[in-house]
Design a protein around this nucleic acid. Structure first.
Length: 219
DNA sequence: TGCCAGGCCCTCTTTAGGGCCTT
């Protein structure tokens, strides 16, 4: 089973293009459903945190003042996940901050990580869920609580548990032995009706005929 | 509590608009 990193950023706002910066990053390394590593750090990017964000995340300006420089934290985070594909909930958000923060380290910073998104996958796999917020999906699946919501490690832990559940459901529903990262990236762009065919195509060279997913029955 | 953005997805759609989701 290949290792993936489940990442979550806390930030000063929604858009690095508008000047927002990361304030905290957490990464949970998963090997299958097993947690094999954790990285978490506040970071000081030299920007003020609004009262709304202080209340939303619990991360205060005082906490940030005492944190290591953002560049140091991001360099360490990049080393931590070198060669490891990443997963996030609403990954387009975390991918933007990942790229923007690593861009500040210079052109040599490794930021070309393939991201998979647990929100897009959940929309495909769980049409009955209703809401696709991380906490809503955690409740929907009765995932174990992981601490204060909207802190990076707690959210990364919940997203990691959600990813494990997604992989488990793909494997059980489509009778495949694994749901590797490349398949997850493909499925998050695949319409729900086409999931069986996409999975079958992915595994067609590896699965014996008797284990091929039955795409005629749909999902 | 939510504005800023951006990508995805649904529908009263596709020559568009608005809601969801992330902080």
């Amino acid at each position: 089973m290949s290792v993936v990193g489940v990442i979550d950023f806390e930030t000063t706002g929604l858009s690095p293009a508008m000047g927002d910066r990361a304030t905290e990053v957490a990464i949970v390394l998963l090997d299958g459903a097993q947690v094999v590593g954790r990285f978490q750090s506040l970071m000081n990017a030299g920007v003020r945190i609004s009262p709304f964000i202080e209340q939303y995340t619990g991360i205060s300006n005082e906490m940030i003042r005492a944190a290591p420089p953002a560049e140091d934290v991001m360099a360490e985070a990049a080393r931590f996940v070198r060669g490891v594909p990443l997963v996030a909930h609403n990954a387009s958000f975390d991918q933007r901050f990942w790229s923007a923060e690593l861009d500040r380290l210079g052109p040599d910073a490794s930021r070309d990580h393939p991201f998979a998104c647990t929100m897009l996958l959940s929309r495909r796999l769980y049409p009955q869920a209703g809401s696709y917020r991380l906490q809503s999906l955690a409740s929907f699946h009765a995932l174990p609580p992981a601490g204060r919501a909207h802190r990076a490690m707690a959210d990364a832990e919940v997203a990691a548990a959600l990813l494990s559940r997604i992989r488990q459901d793909i494997q059980r529903e489509y009778e495949v032995d694994a749901a590797p990262h490349a398949l997850l990236v493909r499925l998050q762009r695949t319409q729900r009706k086409a999931l069986p065919k996409a999975i079958q195509a992915y595994f067609s060279s590896a699965l014996p005929a008797s284990r091929q997913p039955d795409h005629e029955n749909g999902a």
